[in-house]
Design a protein around this nucleic acid. Structure first.
Lengths: 180, 180
DNA sequence: AACTACATGTAAGAGGTTACATGATTCA
DNA sequence: TGAATCATGTAACCTCTTACATGTAGTT
């Protein structure tokens, strides 16, 4: 996964390993973490595969290794971006969506639609689970078990809502609370 | 982590490895996945440590290995449950909260409060990030980058809302949408 | 002078997953 | 009788984290 996130980060800019990590942190850092201990070895691997090339640079006094994506790298990235993601967790899916601007609009919309179906099925199964708890006599003893389930449902519902807004390319501002 | 989730699952019931996995799937499966390839080796490890004991059972015709938690196992679990979780991802935190019914009420409330502070700080930083995108001239080219950020904010806000409700032990029903 | 941020890397190992191997039982 | 589910396990591998090692450049 990180392999492709790095390729995606290098898609339209040449960066050093250090900068790649910062870029990930400030971008999809919310859904995906990358440590130096993983970034550097993967850059070496990508170089071996011919997916990136490396140029030494000492412009700002410091020596840097600036990585540049190759045509093969771009192909590999686009292949990953388009492949089936229905098994992804919400976080993994969103890490992918982060790069959806590189996809034709119909393709990205279809992908979101498909994931939305999966989420709706999942929601059904959680609402079913909820019924079991509702009939229990000593609900207080299960407060936190029930409340984690409720958070799960909440999260799914907000993701479904997000899908609908994103598919229609509607104004995103309405999604978030102004007065929390 | 899985080590403690297994101990938590065995806290008030004796189960086979197979049943433990099912139990996790139906419980915190939403936040945490466990495969057989991880459950069985961990059960062996826990047995070696003396945190669980194992009894062969062939009641329903099938041979099962029923695991039972020991006093040391309970101590180890409670220690994990009480230790600082401020570095946890939301998913990891919720997997922990799943077992909060085993904690005194004041302790669990304090833990949720503390995590809530961390989330609020995080929210600030994301709202800050949002400003950067808002000033960009060609926002359409960044639609999906912006929308993943918005989802991140959404998720945080619903988690903060959850914390407030859970801390007050308010009615959870209000959290979820009835008419999605 | 000390501290923070920049910059690159490695070694050990945690913490899993996937695929395979095996066999019993239940149900359509 | 064949498929699904129950049931336990292993071996190979993957992916990443943590901690360490090393050194430079700017900032207080």
């Amino acid at each position: 996964m990180l392999e492709f996130i790095i390729l995606g980060t290098l898609f339209s800019q040449n960066l050093s390993g250090y900068d790649i990590r910062k870029c990930i942190e400030n971008g999809i850092g919310m859904f995906y973490k990358a440590s130096y201990g993983s970034v550097y070895p993967i850059l070496a691997k990508l170089t071996n595969k011919g997916f990136v090339t490396c140029n030494e640079d000492s412009q700002d006094g410091r020596k840097k290794k600036i990585y540049q994506i190759t045509e093969e790298g771009r192909l590999s990235f686009m292949e990953w971006l388009q492949k089936d993601e229905s098994q992804d967790s919400i976080e993994a899916f969103m890490a992918r969506v982060f790069f959806f601007d590189k996809l034709p609009e119909e393709v990205s919309k279809k992908k979101i639609q498909k994931y939305e179906y999966y989420l709706e099925e999942y929601e059904e199964s959680l609402l079913e689970q909820r019924k079991k708890y509702m009939d229990l006599p000593n609900r207080e003893d299960y407060f936190y078990k029930i409340s984690t389930l409720y958070f799960g449902i909440c999260k799914l519902q907000s993701m479904i809502k997000w899908c609908r807004v994103a598919r229609k390319k509607e104004e995103l501002e309405n999604l978030i609370d102004k007065d929390i």
